[in-house]
Amino acid sequence: MNTVTPVSPVRTRKKQNKFLRFLNSKKVVPFVFISPFVLSLLLFTVYPAIQGVIMSFQSVLPGQVEFIGMSNYERVLNPTFYRAVSNTTAYVVLTVIILTIIPMVLAVILNSKHVRFRTLFRASLFIPALTSTIVGGMIFRFMFSEQQGAVANQLIGVFGFDPLKWMFTPWAAIGLMVMLACWRWIGVNILYFLAALQNVPDEMYEAAEIDGATRLQRFRFITMPMLKPIIIFVSTITIINGFRMFEESYVFWAVGSPGNIGLSIAAYIYQQGIQQNDMGFGAALGVVLMLIIFVISIIYLIATGTFKKGDR
């Protein structure tokens, strides 16, 4: 029954040795190391990215896929999409201003030797980053609930304002998402700035002090220019994450905010692609979002000189 030709043990070992030596050669080893990564990258990133572009020209229904040219893209320009874009843009502008300036100022303060309990403050500001958007958002819903006794309404009450229905007021809706994101990310951005501040040589400040520069001048003419790369980095990351924002919107309104006051571009993709099962249209929205993010990333790479040749 056994049809396998018997092989002498010596020959198998020789063959095995050759194979093992091949596997162990310096030319092959790196490819063995990277192959699982490359495979999963191809399957779970490259393939879906290409598929996403193809889908954006298709009408995708179960068992019935056909090319429909540009009509998904023609549908993109509609009032709901404008709403999502304007909400997202407002969110991006506000988060990028707040999440760049405030962490920078706080980092400069935390970097000063005259301030006490620095480690404690740094840790406290970092702790919000450990919560998920869902849990953080739930806490914010209780702080900004419409009851008169809730923290936010108590605070504005001090200034004589009437209690507000935060989650159902257009400008407050954006504000809620912005505050949630800023609360979670300030500590992380402070750490970026602190790391960069560590690289500013003390001699520069000493020299400036001898020349009679004021504290503000030292900040403006030494600290700011030295921090420029990290300012660009932090603001770019914030802009990109801002355009991708989804959870901050979901935690307050799931996907149905009244009049779409809290709808983001990503939430619109989810709503159309998954909930309405209109995958082709959702994919077209995704391509538009990707183009926005690509342009910003490339501006960032040019601004930081990544494309320039030379040693780092």
């Binding site: 779970f44 990133t45 879906p48 889908m55 993709i269 995958m279 995704g286």
Partner: peptide, 24 residues
């Protein structure tokens, strides 16, 4: 080349992969 490719792939937002990945 591999390194540069990874840089570019890093820039692809999850939101565009989301629907095709879901289909996959």
């Amino acid at each position: 080349i591999f390194f540069v490719a990874v840089v570019f792939i890093l820039m692809v937002p999850f939101e565009i992969l989301m629907l095709p990945l879901f289909r996959l």
